Amino acid sequence: MFSANQVSAGNKLIVTVLLLPVILTGCTYSTTLSPPADSRNIHFSATVPADLESLPLSAMYRSKKCTRTRTSGSGKSYDVPGFNSAKYPLSVTANGDVTADIPVSGGGYCDWQLSNIKFEVRMKEPKIIESGISDNFGFKTVFITDNNAPQAFNGGYTSHKGDFNESLLLFPFISEYFLGGHKKTIEVIGESDMLTYRLSGANNIHLMVVYDKNMVSRWTDVKEKKEGNRTVITYPNGEEERKSKSYPDYKKLLKIYEERKNHIQR
């Protein structure tokens, strides 16, 4: 469980930590990250398919020393751990993996400590799937290393002890809007809107990203005179499903994916 200033694991709402201007307690000081040379690193690596691109790692650090003051709805002030962020570019290894070393101690006057890491992949060339796409959204995987709510959170997490080595299966998904003007967006989707892991004792994180560009599903809003407005999910096998939600059923996608694999292997 996260503490009072954090988000409960049972909350299913997506929460993004907003880095709003707040009051730093104490005297004026530098909040610059300055990892000491002997800081323990978490080694991150990921195997990413050629059709996807990885964005720089986003790391958030927390400080119990440099707190921040917030005001509750009743007007009462209270302190929370300070937060700071850093981007870590990913380098490419000889075998094609992307990798970075993330210092656990951010150092500096505030004694910053690593709180969470966010990794994101998105489509490299959306036009390969379809033309006319205006927005390209990625899929996020977040690794929590303390008891604080992360920078992006969907209300739940999976606990993991020791080094992390897991695979992630993603599919392309197009959303097409007709009402109020035509617009198409694309994103890569997984088992949920994002994945969050709470790590304990991890020195190494490796993520194997698997992606099938031929498993395209589509959501559309449709305006019909007889039936009124309706939303439709079209699956890679052509099956249609009316849904108010704008995401396909991942279990159904997985079944289609396995059926296609088995057919090819025969």
Rank of each mutant, 00 (worst) to 15 (best):
K225A: 11
L18D: 09
G26L: 07
P81V: 07
K140M: 09
P172S: 06
S74L: 09
P21T: 10
V216S: 02
D135K: 10
T47D: 14
V121H: 03
G238D: 12
K64Q: 14
A149C: 10
K243E: 15
K64I: 14
V22F: 11
L18W: 04
V216I: 11
A100Y: 01
G181I: 06
A46K: 02
V92L: 01
H160R: 09
G108R: 02
G82A: 12
N116E: 08
T32G: 02
E239D: 10
T28N: 09
S34N: 13
A4Q: 14
T158K: 13
Y250G: 05
Q113E: 13
S131C: 01
K225T: 10
I14C: 10
L199G: 05
L195I: 07
G96D: 01
R198K: 15
N5D: 15
T234A: 06
Y197R: 01
E166T: 09
L195N: 15
K76P: 00
D193T: 14
V48W: 00
S246F: 01
P172Y: 03
F171G: 00
M208A: 15
L207N: 02
F153L: 04
S192M: 09
L55H: 03
T67S: 11
F171L: 06
K255G: 07
L33K: 08
L33I: 15
T145S: 05
P36W: 02
I256T: 04
G26W: 07
S74C: 00
I23E: 13
K124S: 12
F153M: 04
T99P: 01
G162N: 11
K161D: 13
G132L: 08
R40S: 13
C110R: 03
P21L: 03
E53L: 08
L253R: 09
I42Q: 03
R260M: 02
P103A: 08
Q113S: 13
V17R: 13
V92F: 00
Y78M: 10
V209P: 10
